[in-house]
Amino acid sequence: MERIPILRMGDTLLVTVQVDMHDQLAVRLLDDLTEMITKARARGVLIDISALDMVDSFIGRMIGDVAATSRILDATTVVCGIQPAVAITLVELGMSLAGVRTALDVEKGMELLRAAAQD
């Protein structure tokens, strides 16, 4: 079954989305991540979507759900690398991804997660 790999680095989970995701794949990623947060006792989730050239309302909702779910499980989610064109489109679409933390790239995302872990 097609899956997006989740990397574990200490107490952080790293996901790099590189394929044009169909809906089932996005749903599977949400399920896998939720399970992994608990199993790996992760404190942070970093989702790098710099390779995605499109985020529609479905994928947007999936990202929002990951953030909300991880919060309940006491982990912080940071989404990084949203491309300018994708950001403009999301805003036009009416999706502000409220409640999702964002960073410019993986490095800055890791910084943000480290800072969040210290709170």
């Binding site: 990084c80 999301l90 805003v91 410019l104 800055k108």
Partner: peptide, 12 residues
């Protein structure tokens, strides 16, 4: 406002 929102989405 949209510009501000898009900037935030990008992590800035």
């Amino acid at each position: 406002l949209k510009t501000v929102a898009a900037t935030r989405l990008m992590g800035a």
